[in-house]
């Protein structure tokens, strides 16, 4: 073997390592993007099945940081048959700590403590997982190994394409993905277009953030669409009445408030 090839082979791991570091750094910047100490907003969730039938649900949601930990509560307001359904999450910053989650079911008038191990499951019938709803356009860094693949365009804007591979089979099973491609807009450090592959390696779904607004100094996804390529099911998640300056009482993130619901 010629010495020049030997040199190339010797440099390959260094180049791969540099790409890994760059990918990791980019996702760290995505996670460091300010998202407000607290926020109150309304969500409109539209799901469309393969026959074109669209079902619409509306929610009110609150989120607040308690130190590095994050608490989120969401209440369904429409339609009447799900009104009052509430979902409370304590998202702990420590990677080893499991989140705590509670679901309030108005038909039973009872709070059901739910396991957070189902983070890859569909969130209440949408094409987003519990994990994606919780992370809000951010990523659990410890779940993946990241690699910067190339400079590209995301929804017609300059972007960085980062590949994420789950760090273990167990994590891949939990999340339901074998590979994720994040197209990051470096101007605002937000993933604008994300492609997912399932455990078997099949193209699973695409998330695209069609509209972003700067509200109270926070870049916010106000219109997000998901297409599931296996089921042809679609989800559209729109946000409005977004307020990052509102004072939110700590009691909002408690079970009694979850039970009282919208009152």
């Amino acid at each position: 073997m010629k010495p020049v090839y030997l040199l190339f082979l010797a440099l390959l791991p260094i180049a791969a390592s540099a790409a890994d570091d760059a990918g990791h750094d980019i996702m760290q910047k995505v996670n460091a993007r300010p998202d407000g100490e607290q926020v109150r907003r309304d969500f409109t969730i539209s799901t469309t099945d393969r026959r074109g039938v669209t079902r619409v649900e509306k929610t009110i949601a609150y989120r607040k940081y308690f130190g590095a930990d994050k608490r989120t509560v969401m209440f369904y307001t429409e339609p009447t048959n799900v009104r009052g359904t509430g979902f409370l999450t304590f998202d702990y910053s420590a990677p080893t700590a499991d989140d705590d989650q509670w679901l309030y079911l108005p038909a039973l008038r009872k709070i059901r403590r739910i396991s957070s191990s189902n983070r890859g499951d569909s969130f209440l019938g949408t094409d987003l997982s519990y994990e994606e709803i919780k992370k809000e356009n951010k990523v659990e860094i410890s779940d993946y190994r990241f690699t910067l693949l190339e400079e590209t365009t995301c929804l017609e804007r300059p972007g960085l394409l980062v590949e994420a591979i789950p760090v273990s089979d167990r994590i891949a099973e939990e999340l339901g993905y074998s590979k994720v491609h994040y197209c990051i807009d470096p101007a605002i450090w937000m993933a604008r277009h994300v492609e997912f592959w399932d455990i078997a390696g099949n193209h699973l779904k695409t998330i695209s953030i069609d509209e972003v607004q700067e509200i109270d100094g926070v870049w916010t996804s106000v219109d997000l669409q998901v297409v599931n390529h296996k089921t042809q099911h679609r989800t559209r998640l729109q946000q409005d009445n977004i307020d990052y300056s509102v004072e939110i009482d700590d009691q909002v993130f408690t079970q009694p408030y979850l039970r009282r619901g919208l009152r």
Partner: peptide
Amino acid sequence: LSTVYGDLTLR
């Protein structure tokens, strides 16, 4: 009382 162990919730 209730708590969670992995996939299990004890009540």
